[in-house]
Write a protein that binds this DNA or RNA. Structure first.
Lengths: 184, 184
DNA sequence: CCTCACATGTAATGAGTTACATGATTGG
DNA sequence: CCAATCATGTAACTCATTACATGTGAGG
């Protein structure tokens, strides 16, 4: 499946019309934030290209005080393209975690940083969970949205519990290392 | 943190010497497979570049029957580079899931495909769990490796349970849609 | 006063994937 | 005989990120 920025924009536009700026915001802290990432540098060109191809249409809106905005809507051709993308087999999930990589080589980590890194990660996961809870009912509630939200909540809750339960053990290692270094 | 193919190779080489081919295999079905991805097209150039930079060294090995292999080892400079990389703050986790995206737009999915996609995903997660269990004790058991393995197992187990518990509800939607389409 | 939110866009750059190119041996 | 495993490497290409470029109004 071609799950790139184009498909992402089509997906969002199939639910509601939006500007490039709004799409970025939705990706940042909406339901999508859990499993998608996109920057302005990819969203704007994608919308422009799809406009040329007729998959989306624009309506320019003047605003007082604020800069003008371009509100994009999906066209029937765009819906067809989204349907086509969604009906292909999904690619494998990719879970890229620098934190886990670091944990694998924690003997290389400066003892005074291990706790910092660990706690920062824990807090990040907690923030992610809060974000997921926050955007409950944000978009048209369909069974799919419900499923995705529940999935995200379940995974985040599990991760947080695991990190809390193993924190002591990980910091013991830190303490031992610090002792060794003090002793030598 | 610069968690790219270079750092990955350095990380693996810090545990044992290996060829580019072996690194690829380890990434494919070792402890790393859960959170990292790399292809030959990125591994070989990375090793070549690091050789020029003195971060790794090579030893050519002739083999009868099999093509010659280049066994790479990490140098003190390489270890320093790894240590430096591991001691920077980790970037945010990126969990990219086309499956979750598709679930969000499941009303666009051809009913006869929904079950197929769902079950394929479930099986994939089960395979991932099996892979994690399999590589227990594969590499030098440190507390970090243990942590990472436990984390992966916990997450995969949770995902599988969730997918099993919600399968019926998701396939009900499928059944309803099929009924509607048959009725119209 | 300064920074943040709003709002759009381009260009340079980076990092990786896929496909290509080659070749021997082993097992079904 | 054909496919898979072992084994290395290059080139074209895709995709996205970062930084740049520009501008206003509101709130602290």
């Amino acid at each position: 499946m071609a799950m790139n920025v184009r498909t992402l924009c089509l997906g969002i536009l199939s639910m509601r019309e939006a500007t490039g700026y709004e799409i970025k915001k939705m990706v940042e802290d909406g339901v999508f934030s859990h499993f998608i990432d996109a920057s302005f540098g990819s969203i704007y060109p994608a919308l422009a290209q799809m406009l040329r191809e007729g998959l989306v249409s624009v309506r320019a809106e003047e605003q007082q005080g604020k800069p003008g905005r371009k509100v994009y809507s999906i066209t029937p051709e765009g819906r067809a393209a989204l349907r086509a993308a969604v009906n292909t087999d999904p690619a494998r999930d990719k879970f890229k975690s620098e934190f886990l990589f670091q944990m694998l080589f924690l003997d290389q980590i400066d003892p005074s940083h291990l706790a910092v890194i660990y706690d920062a990660y824990l807090e990040e996961q907690e923030a992610e969970l809060a974000r997921i809870e926050d955007c409950a009912g944000e978009i048209d509630e369909g069974p799919g949205a419900q499923f995705v939200q529940d999935y995200g909540r379940t995974m985040m809750t599990t991760a947080i519990r695991f990190l809390r339960e193993n924190r002591a053990a990980m910091l013991d290692i830190f303490a031992e290392k610090a002792k060794e270094e003090a002793g030598s």
